[in-house]
Amino acid sequence: MNHFCRQASRLTSDRFERNLHVGERIKLAIHLWMCASCRNYASTLQVLHATLKYMRSDEEKKIKLSPSRKQAIIAQCHQKNEGNASDTPVNDLLKSNPKPSEE
């Protein structure tokens, strides 16, 4: 007998990435109803997904750039000031400013 678990695991993951087609949704729902292993896997992925989401906001607050690196940036830019400023290819990139205005 050929099982549907391999495909079900893929669909379970894909649910986080895209909208499943109606046929896929029905097949998956029926399989999850019958198969405890796949049901456990699906609930595990939900827990993992939600946990990572919580961690995201938590982690972000703690991240700070080291003072020595801040000094290094300032020093590098001052050095540039004394030399010849501007006119690098990056200028082209910077001319197109993103739209939203916050100031």
Partner: peptide, 24 residues
């Protein structure tokens, strides 16, 4: 981050002010 600041600083005249500096 250092590269970005350096590139931005070199090209600061290109900043048009139609977005916030942070967005830029």
């Amino acid at each position: 981050v250092q590269d970005a600041f350096f590139a931005a600083w070199k090209a600061k005249d290109g900043f048009k002010g139609n977005s916030s500096r942070k967005t830029w």
